[in-house]
Amino acid sequence: MKKRVLLVSCEGLGNGGVQAIMMGIVRKLSDDFHFDMLLFTSEKRYYDDEFLTFGGKIFRIPNYEGNCSFLKRIDYYVRDIRVFMQLKSIFNKEEPYDVIHCNREYENAIILKLAAKYQIPIRIAQAHIIHGKRNAVCTLLDKFRQKIANKYATERIGCSESACVSLFSKDVKYQIVNNFYNDDIFYPRNKEVETNKVLTLVQVGAISNIKNQKFSVEVLENIRNLGIDAKLRIIGFDMDGDYKQQVLNKIIELSLKEYVEFYPGDIEISHVLSTSDCFIMPSYHEGFGIALIEAQAVGLHSFASDTIPPSTNCGGVDYLSLSLGSLYWATKIVDWFKCYKPDAIDTSKYKMSLVINQYKHLYNKS
């Protein structure tokens, strides 16, 4: 009989980095394990239908989905209680699980504690991001959650040293498991960059302040001011309507509307990457940045902020400080474009076909 695994998402099953990892696990290990999925949105998203083809169930405990900031704040503070009660009901109705694999950062805490109460033997907490500064109340709540998660997790894993320290602290045992990319989809296209044509930049990631798309728009303006015909492609779901409007306002302010293209997060990203010239990732922080690996896997040279873990460099990344400004970034990109030569890129250690065995080992621990 297959072991039963409950995968706990960070939110829904949209086309994001965490979700891509979970779906890769399901695709590769469904012959050995039965997977169910716990989501925190009522929306049907990119991977929902595909996940159901593997025979598992989707459970939903939606967060508050309205637009009232006050109710959002209240929901955040009472969410643990609501999740505890609804997940308890799920555990009472379903066959016992052998593994619970949580991808919900600090909110893993109450889920792991309940899983321990229901004697789920393998309880995995996974760190995906580096947490920024919060207000005093949230910081105290997260510290409390950290202690609970560390107590009840049997395995602590993360995509980088910094992500693990951010979620678990440096004083506990954890294991780094590389984020992987789907090497069946992302692979070199043997493309050459033609320096006499339009330079196409591409950025992948949720449209949000952390991903810093406004900065990319400013970089584009400076590249064009340096005499290079260039355009920018932005791929990602709108995670913050206010921030996207700021990006749109910046595009209009700089008269760049015809040079910036938006693509939804559920587009075939590998195709857009393979028809672009270079990748830009000016994030304020990232737990890892799997999109950088995917970009290099198709052969794109990348320009990324120096807050991103250097382990993402497979031979094709220039790390730049955001404090140096968009003109500096633009100058670096133009210099690369004028003197283009292919990078010696090796993304093999991040291939799904290799990393997946680490998850199989974790799920089979007794």
Rank of each mutant, 00 (worst) to 15 (best):
1 M>C: 02
3 K>M: 09
4 R>E: 00
4 R>M: 00
5 V>F: 05
6 L>A: 00
7 L>Q: 08
8 V>M: 01
15 N>K: 13
20 A>M: 11
21 I>N: 10
23 M>L: 14
25 I>F: 03
27 R>Q: 04
30 S>G: 00
32 D>E: 14
47 Y>L: 01
48 D>H: 09
51 F>K: 00
52 L>T: 11
58 I>Q: 10
60 R>F: 05
67 N>E: 12
67 N>V: 01
68 C>R: 12
69 S>P: 15
70 F>Y: 13
70 F>M: 10
75 D>C: 03
77 Y>A: 01
79 R>E: 04
90 I>M: 06
97 Y>K: 04
97 Y>M: 03
98 D>H: 15
100 I>M: 09
104 R>D: 07
109 A>M: 04
112 L>F: 07
113 K>T: 00
120 I>Q: 01
120 I>V: 15
121 P>E: 07
123 R>H: 12
125 A>E: 07
126 Q>W: 11
133 K>G: 05
134 R>D: 11
137 V>R: 06
143 K>C: 10
145 R>N: 15
146 Q>V: 11
148 I>P: 09
155 E>C: 11
157 I>S: 10
158 G>T: 09
161 E>G: 00
162 S>L: 08
164 C>F: 13
165 V>S: 03
169 S>C: 10
171 D>R: 08
173 K>E: 10
174 Y>D: 00
188 P>F: 10
201 L>G: 07
205 G>D: 02
206 A>F: 06
208 S>L: 01
208 S>I: 09
209 N>R: 14
211 K>T: 08
212 N>M: 02
214 K>P: 00
216 S>H: 03
217 V>S: 03
219 V>C: 01
222 N>L: 02
224 R>I: 15
225 N>M: 12
236 G>N: 13
236 G>M: 08
238 D>P: 12
241 G>F: 13
243 Y>Q: 08
254 L>F: 03
254 L>Y: 07
256 L>A: 06
258 E>K: 14
258 E>N: 14
262 F>G: 04
266 D>N: 15
267 I>A: 12
268 E>A: 11
272 V>C: 06
278 C>P: 06
285 H>L: 04
288 F>D: 01
290 I>Y: 06
292 L>R: 00
295 A>S: 11
296 Q>H: 02
296 Q>P: 07
301 H>N: 09
304 A>F: 05
306 D>M: 01
307 T>I: 00
308 I>H: 05
309 P>A: 05
316 G>H: 08
319 Y>M: 07
323 S>L: 09
328 Y>N: 10
331 T>L: 04
334 V>H: 14
335 D>Y: 11
340 Y>W: 14
341 K>C: 04
346 D>Y: 14
356 I>D: 08
356 I>L: 06
362 L>C: 06
365 K>P: 05
